[in-house]
Design a binder for these strands. Structure first.
Lengths: 250, 250
DNA sequence: TCTTGACCCTCCTCTTAGGTCAGCCCTTTT
DNA sequence: AAAAGGGCTGACCTAAGAGGAGGGTCAAGA
């Protein structure tokens, strides 16, 4: 008994288009093509389709399903890897849902949802490590003796600065982890951008000032530990980079 | 202070490409375009970008983010809806992960993973109910009213199906004797597994189809007596259970 | 002033897993 | 013989950008 696309579709609840698609990908090839060009599937193909659907349900990409069906050696490996990925996604989803709930209650209570709340949700996520969280609170002190005092611009401006500082630090940490030289142009540019931002927010910080500040961080336990807590070596990397910039700017 | 795309990218960790994209969508429009056509963003745009990123992290599609930022009336509605969607996705993910685990242990123990196991994972999912409904009504007529009859497919296949059907019926009979409610989750799951098995063997049976079939059994002497011969009340119990499933699936 | 390198622009194609026509061919039924 | 209901290919569409080609712009050093 051979089945046409429509029939296979009805049996398996896969659309005709999907069958075409699987054929084109070589994932499910009809056992026979009629004279008129019709796709005809047999029992073996139906069985294969069931397996495809099984893996599809596990959210495997079609290309990987092909591999899974072809060579069953890696099957276990792939399954385990997939499990890890799905677990990560689940973790992430849970974090996002928590944030969402928070936002909902905030709105319900009439709070307009300010930026600090907005970014609370990111703490659990990869983009904003826990390390960043504390830093966000202390970064104001990090930059100058009293930059947290908002002279003008108001609260939103302050939050913007905290966000920028956090983002900057993350970039530095990432560069460090990526093995980028402390005097690499890209990194130097990042610092310049950061300084420009600071300057645009009422904090006059020259390259030399910044270098002095980072040297201070090395000797100050609180600041150093904060930076090192985020990424081992970050305090030193930052200082080297700042000094390189100051030397170049000088 | 105005920022170029690169600078905004560095501050916000959004790629330049994404900024282009947001511009094209009208989601984030630069406050100024330089003479040379450069995009220039101000503080207000940076702030808006933060909000965009917030919602993006919540997995809102960009189009909806636009609405969210434009009119804050529906904000709560949209947040709640989004929460529901994410919760569903989480549920689904959990089911899939469980299935995955099951497959992994099956393979570890050397079992070749048979179809029944394969489809256990699908029981909880909506995919297995919704789409089937209408199409199968039609199919019941098209492919005969009695999918239990093996038209062809070979003897081993037939034996397997007969074995599965017998096992299923025994489980139903046992449940009946054990006093398990017809709408108990465990029982419903057993039926779903059975249907999944049927489907994997070329017999399209939706929950509604199955319910119709069991009703038919009640009126057909041959079938009813067969069931009642196995266990008194089984035909009725089966019908009640099937109808409960169909109602739930609907 | 010229060149170099880092930016910037637009436009094009590519990705997943198919969905949705449009236009034409095949099979079955009336 | 014609109508209905398949089937086929092929082109274009989706979300959220990534990657690259080809070309313009800006600042710095020689």
């Amino acid at each position: 008994m051979l089945y046409t696309v429509k029939e296979v579709s009805a049996i398996s609840h896969v659309t005709v288009k999907a069958l075409h698609h699987y054929h084109k990908l070589g994932l499910l090839v009809p056992c026979e093509i009629s004279e008129a060009g019709y796709r005809l599937y047999g029992a073996k193909e139906l069985e294969r389709l069931q397996h495809i659907l099984f893996y599809r349900e596990l959210e495997f990409p079609l290309e990987q399903i092909k591999e899974l069906l072809e060579k069953e050696d890696d099957r276990l490996t792939l399954l385990l890897r997939q499990e890890q990925q799905l677990l990560q996604r689940k973790q992430r989803l849970e974090g996002v849902i928590a944030t969402l709930r928070h936002s909902v209650t905030s709105i319900r209570e009439g709070k307009p949802m300010n930026d600090r709340e907005m970014f609370k949700g990111f703490e659990t996520e990869e983009a904003w490590n826990e390390a960043l969280k504390e830093q966000n609170q202390h970064l104001g002190q990090t930059y100058g003796m009293e930059p947290l005092q908002v002279e003008e611009g108001g609260v939103p401006d302050m939050n913007e600065q905290a966000a920028e500082a956090a983002a900057f630090m993350k970039e530095m940490a990432d560069s460090l982890k990526a093995g980028i030289r402390h005097d690499h142009g890209q990194l130097q540019q990042a610092i310049r951008t950061h300084l420009a931002f600071m300057n645009s927010h009422g904090h006059a910080v020259s390259a030399a000032d910044f270098a002095a500040q980072t040297r201070f961080f090395l000797s100050d336990d609180f600041h150093r530990q904060m930076l090192e807590g985020q990424q081992t070596g970050l305090a030193y990397y930052l200082c080297a980079a700042a000094e390189a910039l100051a030397a170049a700017a000088e």
